[in-house]
Design a protein around this nucleic acid. Sequence first.
DNA 1: AAGTGGTCTAGACCACGTT
DNA 2: ACGTGGTCTAGACCACTTT
Lengths: 243, 243
Amino acid sequence: MARYHDIAEAVRGAITRGFYERGSQLPSERELSEEFDVAPGTIRQALGELETEGVLASRRGSRRTVVGEPRPAATFEEFRSFAQWASSRGRVPAGHVISGVWQDASPLDREELRLPTAARVFCVVRVRLLDGSAIMVERTRYRDSVGAEVEQISSDCPSVTAWLAATANITFSRAEHQFSACPAGAEDARLLNVRRGSPLLMHKRVSFSRDGLPLEWSVDRYVAGTISLVVDNSLNANALRWA
Amino acid sequence: MARYHDIAEAVRGAITRGFYERGSQLPSERELSEEFDVAPGTIRQALGELETEGVLASRRGSRRTVVGEPRPAATFEEFRSFAQWASSRGRVPAGHVISGVWQDASPLDREELRLPTAARVFCVVRVRLLDGSAIMVERTRYRDSVGAEVEQISSDCPSVTAWLAATANITFSRAEHQFSACPAGAEDARLLNVRRGSPLLMHKRVSFSRDGLPLEWSVDRYVAGTISLVVDNSLNANALRWA
DNA sequence: AAGTGGTCTAGACCACGTT
DNA sequence: ACGTGGTCTAGACCACTTT
């Protein structure tokens, strides 16, 4: 739809097809604006997209440089949702609910979800399978408005995210993630079929609505070696920090 | 220097000071352009910066919404460099080199660093300390041009990154990171003073120059519980993917 | 000196969401 | 119907780098 996005895709495609080689130089923005018959600003917007992806690096005075392979450009949803990620890779996601109960919000819940002093949260423990084997246990706590919807989802629904978007018009637009490592606890070991104390990748996540309201927070634990996380960052765009 | 950046900072500051409350609504872009006496496009660029940070969320028809607390906006360097991160937090970074040797590039080196079939790499093993205790072991492999500089660095230099920038004019402009969990091996256990098999956060990293040339790649292993990684993503800007 | 990217102007039109 | 953000135009000037 947007012209600048089409141009970005066109340039990305030209790089993929080898028309522009790695390390070679793109035409100047003014030349490109004539070639595509758009205003220079539109070209800048297009190239800006590719710069953020790390495909291009710009230099003044000299000419801008083609840097690397274009990335598949993973979407936000693909990352946030286990099922959508798996499907996009041609793997088979599955999952079942171990428990789903309403609890009074703990102080931690109230902080993460910005809840008033008296509030309930819907707590779900799920085990996620990839191609038939358990790789992750997920402990999620939903704020009441979302929990009321989640409660109605059948326990073997492959994608909670997709269900919420389709039937309750609840979508996530931003998330904050924290990663660390931890030893498997007793319940982890039982659910994931690993030994106690074996290494797990821990992923804490808080997901927000478009309005910035925290909708859920979750602690997921992955069996080491099954899955890993990839992040790009650059001088232009950095979404990472240590804590 | 750039007007749009000043405006972004001004709005960020206004949010921090509570002038705009969380969940409240910003003036329209046209109003802001009058207030700051700039063209509308400049305002868009400024607000775009805040949207990517997740501080603002925009909606059409209604008015755009102030979403959350402004983040400290960690810089790329702060994340890439252990020493710079630690210093910025008022903690004491230290490190010493366990070994530093030239080796023939392995097939893996050649792939990660895009080297020709015959090439050397400079391999360094370092232990990093935070406030006096060992928390990370780092195994880095530099391409020869960088290795030649690294070789001259004294073994207790706190920040290799800062040294390279200052004396050899070598700067990193982009990096790709991969995170997973793994058990401590024999050497890890000895260097980090933990038991074999205890969980470590594994961080593989490839760093690139402005021109997209891979300069080094590294596998760092952190003692679980000492440090964790935080990432933001959103529908607008997503730098994460599973692998 | 010439060319480039980075920034900015002062508009325009459209699609969308709310009223 | 109206106001909003999203996109785009057709320029301009400056800072920087290389020639």
